[in-house]
């Protein structure tokens, strides 16, 4: 997507890449939208801070792992640091893709991210 006139860089500047530790996030107002930018193991992802379930503050929820599918009573904890639980009702979303774990028909809005010269840009 082409950034609107007046934006000299790709997308919208969110922060410096060293502002977000792995596992951390920042919330920014970009192009009139509240957006969460996450650092997952050194890769950056951006999600709209508005939950597709009921409009809650998705990006203010905790970043966690979760139980992986199992057929017996085993509890295999996986996807550590890759799950965002919505701050309201706690539905789980995969940060990288926006996939909603409990409801595959639902997806959180994600935006591509570009890191250039230590700066993080979100392509809105």
């Amino acid at each position: 997507m082409t950034p609107p006139a007046g934006e000299h860089r790709p997308g919208f500047y969110a922060c410096r890449s060293d502002e977000i530790e792995p596992g951390g996030r920042v919330i920014r107002e970009l192009n009139g939208r509240s957006v969460g930018v996450f650092n997952v193991d050194g890769r950056f992802y951006a999600l709209r801070n508005r939950c597709p379930h009921a409009g809650g503050a998705l990006c203010l929820g905790p970043v966690t792992g979760t139980t992986l599918p199992a057929r017996d009573f085993s509890f295999v904890y996986g996807m550590q640091g890759r799950i965002l639980r919505c701050a309201w009702h706690g539905w789980e979303f995969e940060i990288a893709t926006g996939r909603c774990l409990p409801d595959p028909r639902m997806r959180a809005k994600t935006y591509p991210v570009v890191v250039e010269d230590g700066a993080v840009y979100v392509m809105i």
Partner: peptide, 9 residues
């Protein structure tokens, strides 16, 4: 398992 509060509150 998560506490029963809205985490943004």
């Amino acid at each position: 398992p998560e506490g029963f509060m809205r985490t943004d509150a």
